[in-house]
Design a protein around this nucleic acid. Sequence first.
DNA 1: GCCGTTTTCGGCCCGACTGTTTTCAGTCG
Length: 575
Amino acid sequence: MARPNDEVEELLQEYADLLAITGGDAFKVRSYEKAARAIGGYHEDVSTLDGKALRAIPGVGKSIADKIVEYFATGSVQAVEEVRATMPAGVRELIAIPTLGPKKAAVLHDDLGITSVDQLVEAIEAERLRGLKGFGPRTEENILHGVRLLRQAGGRVLLNVALDVADAVIAELTAVTGCERCVYAGSLRRFRETIGDVDILAAAKDSEPLMRAFRSMSFVDEVIAAGEKKTSVRTTKGLQVDLRVVPLDAWGAALQYFTGSQAHNVRTRVMAVQAGLKLSEYGIFDAETGALIVSKTEEEVYHRLGLPWIPPPLREDRGEIEAALRGELPELVTEADLRGDLHTHTDLTDGVASLEDMVHAAAQRGLDYYAITDHAPDMPMQRMSDEKVLAQRRRVRELDGTVHGLRLLHGTELNIGPDGDVDWPEDFLRGFDIRVASIHSHFTQDRATMTRRLVRACENPCVDILGHPTARLIGRRLPVDVDLAEVFRACARTGTAMEINSAPDRLDLRDEDILLARRYGVMFAINSDAHAEPHLDLVRYGVGTAQRGWLTAADVINTWPLRRLRTFLAHKPTR
DNA sequence: GCCGTTTTCGGCCCGACTGTTTTCAGTCG
């Protein structure tokens, strides 16, 4: 189901985790983690590569290349199986809890026999951790808080995970004889940031061949319900997938119904009732006679209710019905509108691909311009220096315009320190074409301090974009506590753009914050924050999030022609 | 386990923060 590279990345990461828990050499653990990332971000399908080609991937040597070859030849890796046999899978789940790492997980397993998150919570409640070396009251509190955070996602998965599953299901069902149409609907079609279950809609005269194919897919773990119109399964990863099959004639009504949201559907059904109609997943009917009026396309359904077609990301009952009635629906920004990417990394810092490879991949995407924004020296782990970044700039200048005409901007991702300062003095900062500034630490400052910190960053004449502004990681870290309205005011006043970071575990700003920011006249940048070539495609999630925030192309600075962008960057009012 | 204008061994991303400690281990970015 997943890309072969993703499978290998997951396998190597699992091996690294298990090695860490079982007390393996820390450098060896890191080697596997690094190789996992490199393979996940590698542009070629690793299942098609031989040992020699695999060893050409940075971070992959003989041992790991052999394991990858073994994996594709036999379906498993002996060394991984051996360590799996000694450590239950549930122990690895423990380290997904924030503040709980491999060492503590090992103690919990070895001393208390804990092999799952549930058992850990029980053990804390039964006070069985008391007296355990290294576990005090704060540790217990932090673990319980971490578990709550994990569960807050409520079994929901990230957008990219759900989309991979949906794409795989659709590819298989589309190939079944008799399948006339097959798409995903539900919250996935609306681009919600997390997905509870994947809704697939198909059209066919006879549903049984589709249902049979669906039930027998390789990743189905359990069939929850199996009927003529609807089948529900749970995948091996625990994600529920529902398949609905309708006659082609009912396509539009069914798609409208199964796309939701529920709140939006309530509104449309009430509108139908008020017009003497009845709206269901089978069509719009005359309430009196029961006669079918329309059902074939979503456009017809909306038009019969006196509405233009409403883009799915808007269907949340957040004013879209009223805007539609007034004829004021926004012309939403699309992926095709994006001319550039303004936040990306290379292997000079924590990316896994070279400058040249990233530039070629960006050119392949058909972008007009592309900014390289590696980390600055205030994040010591990145080992950035003036010399390194200036050497990179020279190389960027050489490459500028030479790869399919792609124009290059030399930038940096600055670190916003606890008091709002950033790396490098102003004269050095002015040497960059573009500067993103982001929070990477001190996430727990109080609201007033955090607000001052971000406002100060905006007021810095050399900060062009606030990167992942709330620093949240979905399911793992809450957004920082900050008065966003105050920050948006500062952004609007200083001409600082807000990033919509497209990484599926960030999506930061999130949709509701975008809706608010827009009211303050803030400008936005939809960026990939790519650390590898395939990440450049992640902007689809950033665009979906921007659409949920009602943004048009005019609101997004990287839809502008380069000239206009450069003017924007050069004319920060505080500069 | 990987890697090499310090090259086949001996380094390896390094500093800050937190909580449990009484000098430091674990986690995180």
